[in-house]
Simulated assay, not measured.
Amino acid sequence: MAGIELLSDEGLRCDGRRPNEVRKMSCSFGVFDQSDGSAYVELGNTRVLAAVYGPHDIRGARSKARHDRAVINCQYSMATFSTSERKHRQRGDYRSLEITSNLREVFENAILTELFPHSQIDIFVEVLQSDGSNYSACVNAATLAVIHAGIPIKDVVCACSASMVGDHSLVDINYMEESVGSGPNMTIALLPKSKQILSMESSGRMHSTAVSQVMDSAMTGCQEILQVMKASILSHTKELNKQ
């Protein structure tokens, strides 16, 4: 299938969405009793679990402790059954290491780490089902898990992907659009209030004239996702207040 065929003559994508539509998103809290905070996110058919432990004492080498802030430890993985390809996925593969590094960078800048010197915060994220935009779904799930753990954070970090098909920018890319589309993909993690971009990654070559269009689409998608996340946080808070 050619990239342009990802859009029908009526302007609909392969899953029936308009180019600027984000997939249906749902969130829940308290998935794991053993963790300090946890969250589960469904973004279309992409499903992600996140768990947060800490702040706690530094584990392992004491030399990595910081006297002025907490150390953020992240780990990203994909379940063996997360895709149609039933193969063992090593935690140390390049893409996993890249996403782990990006997640750590995002939350080092989002969490108020200066409040917890000589401590460590662990963030574990696992993709249970992959249907595109894994990284953005992981950022959103990890954010909710951090909030559920009661760890102070600058803002509700939200992330969204975008791409180009012909002259059209697509928001929240699914697996088919990622793997079949000829256009470049971009994912942005954002602090919404300040509009500070904490992470921006892209794959594929992008003409300079398309960069701003794709960025604007991703940031618009972030705002839509933010509303769902805020509604979930509010609903969870109300449930806690009833108890």
Rank of each mutant, 00 (worst) to 15 (best):
I188P: 02
A39R: 04
D172C: 00
G30E: 10
R69I: 04
S179Q: 15
Y76L: 04
S203D: 11
A61K: 11
A231V: 03
S232E: 09
H67V: 15
L43Q: 15
Y40G: 02
E21I: 08
F81I: 09
R69E: 05
D131G: 11
M78N: 01
G54H: 10
I123Q: 02
V31I: 14
V22S: 12
S194R: 15
P192V: 02
D15W: 08
S235I: 07
E108N: 15
Q243R: 10
G44E: 04
Y40N: 04
D172I: 01
T220K: 05
M215Y: 07
E5C: 06
S212F: 13
D9C: 09
V22R: 02
C158Q: 00
R205Q: 12
G44S: 09
L6D: 02
S208K: 08
I233W: 07
V139T: 03
P184H: 08
K154N: 03
E42C: 05
H207C: 07
C158V: 15
L234V: 13
M206S: 13
S8A: 11
E108S: 15
P192G: 09
S96K: 00
G221F: 01
I225A: 05
N185A: 08
S203R: 08
T100W: 08
G92E: 00
F116T: 03
I4H: 12
G181P: 10
S101I: 01
T220Y: 09
N45T: 00
A51R: 09
N102V: 06
S202L: 03
S179A: 13
Y175P: 02
S202K: 11
C222G: 05
V139L: 02
L6C: 10
T100D: 03
N20C: 08
V211Y: 04
P192S: 07
L226A: 10
R23F: 10
N134K: 11
H56N: 13
V146C: 08
E21S: 13
G60H: 14
G16I: 07
I151Y: 01
R104H: 10
V228S: 04
N174F: 05
R95V: 12
V71E: 01
T220H: 05
S182E: 15
V48C: 00
G132K: 05
A110M: 12
N73I: 13
S202P: 00
K242N: 07
S235W: 00
M1R: 07
N185Q: 14
D122C: 14
E5T: 07
A51S: 15
S119M: 06
L115S: 12
L43E: 02
L7K: 07
D172M: 02
A162F: 03
D15V: 00
S26I: 14
L198M: 13
S28G: 15
P19E: 07
T100Q: 03
M1V: 06
